[in-house]
């Protein structure tokens, strides 16, 4: 019994320590986002890093998600005789939910993991210590550009995902299953409101902050050697993915 209590106690203390450490890192990072001088060159580099690395994946997953959605929704809607609602169904699912979530998951796998590995390699090769030794704040040079870049890039990639997804659904629904093109788009205009777009935007913005913070943190405090970097990269992807889904539920219930 005493052993169990000891184990639980030390687990609770170490978890609290980790959470505190992470919170201090996040607070510091957010503070430096608003503290000049701003490093615009590094920001442009990171926008390219996130955008360029994820564009092809987003185009592919977006189009296939739209196509699968069309198939499944058509099957369900036909049971109720409401095939005409396929267009708005696809658009609402993508804009409110699947677009932001799947984009965030894809960017985490593609660019987030690379970001953790890059910062982690900088840590183990003492490049971060070199920055500190030069009296330059690593937060400003390594972390802030990623957060700002993610806030800019995530909504843009999400918009791209949504658009490609809607056209993927169009290809299947209109060209394959025979729904009229006019019905597909005109009902979409009727049912999709600005509020839905805003919900998607809020989600993608918050996912951008979340993913960039988690991936940067895991890289910044990586373990020793190549094994440490590899472990941090895996942890960053797993933790970001879980947090995306949990935060999505929370936001979904608040913004419904």
């Amino acid at each position: 019994m005493e052993k169990l209590l000891r184990f639980l106690g030390s687990w609770a203390i170490s978890t609290l320590k980790k959470m505190g450490h992470m919170t201090i890192f996040f607070a510091n990072a957010i503070y430096f986002v608003f503290a000049p001088p701003f490093k615009f060159n590094l920001l442009l580099r990171q926008i390219r890093f996130f955008g360029n690395k994820s564009m092809l994946v987003i185009l592919l997953t977006g189009s296939f998600t739209g196509m699968v959605l069309a198939l499944q929704l058509y099957y369900i809607l036909r049971k109720f005789g409401s095939e005409a609602l396929l267009g708005p169904g696809i658009a609402l699912s993508l804009i409110r939910e699947l677009g932001p979530v799947l984009t965030a998951l894809m960017v985490t796998g593609r660019a987030g993991s690379a970001l953790t590995a890059e910062i982690g390699m900088m840590r183990i090769s003492e490049q971060i210590d070199a920055l500190t030794a030069m009296a330059l704040n690593p937060m400003r040079y390594l972390i802030v550009p990623n957060i700002v870049a993610a806030v800019i890039v995530f909504p843009l990639l999400t918009a791209m995902f949504d658009t490609i997804g809607i056209y993927g659904g169009y290809m299947v629904g209109v060209k394959l299953l025979g729904i009229s093109s006019g019905t597909y788009f005109s009902l979409m205009e009727d049912y999709v409101e600005m509020k839905d777009v805003i919900v998607g935007l809020y989600k993608s913005l918050s996912f951008g902050i979340l993913v960039s913070l988690v991936c940067s943190y895991k890289g910044f405090y990586t373990g020793y050697g190549a094994e440490g970097v590899s472990k941090s990269t895996t942890e960053a992807v797993v933790m970001s993915s879980i947090l995306i889904l949990v935060w999505d539920y929370f936001l979904g219930s608040v913004l419904l």
Partner: peptide
């Protein structure tokens, strides 16, 4: 501390050059 660091130059073990 940064003001003190400005007086320092450091050659790290592996060089720590920015890749």
């Amino acid at each position: 501390l940064d003001k003190i660091r400005e007086k320092l130059g450091v050659l790290f073990q592996g060089g720590a050059l920015f890749d």
